[in-house]
Amino acid sequence: MIASVLDTVGDITPLLDRQRYVALTVAATIVVVVCELVRRRKLREEYSWVWVATAVVVAALALEGDVLTYLSAFVGSSSPVWTLFFGTMLFVLALTLQFSVRLSRLTHRHRTLGQRLALLEAELQRLREREEAQRSADRRAANRAAPDREHDVVA
């Protein structure tokens, strides 16, 4: 297996300088945009690191051409550019799947929260009505006990 991979390495043309620059520019752009979003508080740090990690991996592979060449041989690709972008695509795919999972969890929490709030409000409403009924019953009882002081009690 390893021998056959090493055999094909020689057939793979390494990244052209221009391709390398494009990959590095993409990586740098990701880092800059992510940092700016964190600075503006539009992206939380806990979600930013995955993107920065993607950029770092892309940059590292672009700079260290040999690793990319071996990877290309391993996956059976003749072009390192294809390998680079295929890898990035897989990474983004995993990321979106993870977001769907997080979204499902958030939806469940948001649902439970809404339900508990609704039940709590209904309970509060019931207690308020009971208190109000109790208060007016007390008032009526007091008025019956001392009709001449009615105004004092009401006030």
């Binding site: 649902r111 809404g114 339900q115 609704a118 409000e121 209904a122």
Partner: peptide, 12 residues
């Protein structure tokens, strides 16, 4: 009446 703060769906 029990009111949901936002629409949660029939099952909810």
């Amino acid at each position: 009446v029990i009111s949901h703060p936002y629409n949660l769906g029939y099952g909810c």
